[in-house]
Simulated assay, not measured.
Amino acid sequence: MTIELALPFAGAWQVRNSPADRVPSHGTTRFASAQAIDFVPVGGDERTAPLTWRSLLRPEPPQRFPGFGRDIVSPVAGEVVAAHDGEVDHEAYRGLPSLGYALTQGRRAAAGWPALAGNHVTIRCAVGVVVLCHLQRGSLTVTVGEQVGTGQPVARCGNSGNSTEPHVHVQAIDRLPVEAAQAVPMTFDGRLPHNGEIVQG
């Protein structure tokens, strides 16, 4: 089974951690993430925030990144079955700070899926469940039990949970809870994006 989705955003985004390049896409099958894709918003130059000497030495505020706060829309029609947006948008980590952040990943994984997902929206559709993660604190515009349509705004791009810079993590699963689910392959508008590719929503 493969689930067909629309892109959950507008503008230019870079593909990272795609199953078009490796499975499991995130290097693990835990939490049904083997088929997940990360989309990183980029600016007009098709890049994230400029990399400077400061970026290499210190964490950066998420507001420095061009996609922080960009609208996220539902990639599918269905029912909102989970919604959470109380987690802080923490600093972004590139260069040397990313090494220190990587050392804390085990602690987040041990805390369970919610600690990894951060702020998220979960939508049950006709053929499975779709999850959008790392959303901006306080940005959700939908509530549990609400019916949403494809393309309907649901939140904004943030940097919550297990995230090194503002992006949206998209995964499809066969059932809830996530801890008992199997990953479901996804295509977006009929295709599977590859790592490094710039997609336009």
Rank of each mutant, 00 (worst) to 15 (best):
M1R: 14
A6K: 13
A6G: 11
L7I: 03
L7R: 05
F9Y: 09
Q14E: 09
V15W: 10
N17W: 11
S18H: 07
D21K: 05
R22C: 10
H26A: 02
T29C: 08
R30Y: 14
A32P: 15
A32N: 08
A34V: 09
A34P: 13
I37S: 04
F39T: 00
V40F: 08
G43S: 06
G44V: 02
T48Q: 10
T48L: 09
R54M: 06
L56V: 14
P61E: 06
R64Y: 05
F65V: 02
P66G: 01
P66R: 01
G67E: 01
G67T: 02
V80W: 00
A82S: 15
H84W: 14
G86W: 08
G86I: 00
E87H: 13
P97N: 02
Y101A: 12
Y101F: 13
G106C: 04
R108N: 12
A109K: 12
P114H: 03
P114R: 02
L116T: 10
H120Y: 09
T122L: 01
I123L: 08
V127H: 12
V127K: 09
G128A: 11
G128K: 03
V129T: 15
V129W: 03
V130L: 04
V131E: 13
L132V: 02
C133K: 09
L135F: 10
Q136H: 10
T143V: 13
V144D: 04
V144C: 12
G145F: 04
E146L: 01
E146H: 05
E146S: 07
Q147C: 07
T150S: 13
Q152I: 02
Q152T: 14
P153C: 00
A155D: 06
A155K: 01
C157Q: 07
N159L: 11
N159P: 12
S160P: 14
S160Y: 05
N162A: 14
S163F: 02
T164P: 12
E165L: 14
H167M: 04
H169L: 06
I173D: 07
D174G: 09
P177G: 01
A180R: 14
A181Q: 07
M186D: 04
T187S: 08
F188I: 02
F188W: 14
D189C: 07
G190H: 04
H194Q: 13
H194T: 06
Q200W: 07
